[in-house]
C-alpha cells in the first residue's frame, strides 16, 4: 500500500512532517501502464510526479535521435526542474513497466513551496542529484568524442 506521506522519496525525505502533511492533501495515487509517457520534452509539466513503484526511462530527444540518460526507480521525483523553473521539460520520461505514481498538481505544489520556503533545501538536493546525473552522462560521452587526451596546448 502506497502512502502519499511516504518519507522515503528523494523530496519528502528532507521535508518536515507538517509540510509532507500539507502536500499529502494535494496528492493522488495513480497507476500507469508500461510505455506511458509521464513527461514530454518541450511541454510544461502540469504535475509533479513521485515514483512509488516501477521503473522509468529518462531520455533526451535530439533531432529524431534519442539519448538515454538512464533509468530511475521508486523514490524518484520527476518534473521538478521544469516546475520550479516554470519552463518546459528538457527530457522525456517513459514508464518501462506498470508504475504506481503519486501526482501533485504543479501550481498547487508551487503554492505550498511559496508558503514554506524552507522546502527549497529539499528541492535543491533533488536538483543537485539530477545535475550530477546529467554531468556524469556528459563525462561518459566525452570518452567517445574526438578530443585530445590530457594535452594542454595553448593556442588562440
Amino acid at each position: 500500500m502506497t502512502s502519499t506521506l511516504d518519507p522515503t522519496n528523494e523530496l519528502y525525505s528532507s521535508l518536515s512532517p507538517e509540510v509532507r502533511q500539507e502536500l499529502a492533501k494535494l496528492a493522488q495515487v495513480t497507476t500507469v501502464a508500461s510505455g506511458s509517457k509521464l513527461v514530454r520534452q518541450g511541454v510544461r509539466p502540469e504535475k509533479l510526479i513521485i515514483l512509488n513503484s516501477g521503473q522509468v526511462e529518462i531520455t533526451v530527444p535530439a533531432e529524431g535521435k534519442t539519448l538515454t540518460l538512464g533509468t530511475a526507480g521508486p523514490g524518484k521525483v520527476l518534473a521538478l526542474r521544469a516546475i520550479v523553473a516554470g519552463e518546459a521539460a528538457e527530457v522525456d520520461i517513459t514508464a518501462l513497466e506498470k508504475c504506481s505514481l503519486t501526482v501533485l498538481p504543479a501550481e498547487e505544489f508551487l503554492n505550498v513551496l511559496r508558503r514554506n520556503p524552507e522546502m527549497y533545501l529539499a528541492v535543491v538536493k533533488v536538483l543537485s542529484g539530477d545535475l550530477r546525473k546529467a554531468d556524469s552522462f556528459l563525462r561518459q560521452k566525452a570518452g567517445n568524442l574526438p578530443l585530445a587526451s590530457g594535452s594542454r596546448t595553448r593556442r588562440r
Binding site: P61, A62, R81, V124, S128, L131, L138
Partner: peptide, 20 residues
Amino acid sequence: AKQLTHNCQCAYTEIRSLGL
C-alpha cells in the same frame, strides 16, 4: 534552486548538442 535549474538546462542542452 534557480541556479541549479539553469545549470541542469545547460547540461541538457549540451547533451542534445553532443548527440546531434
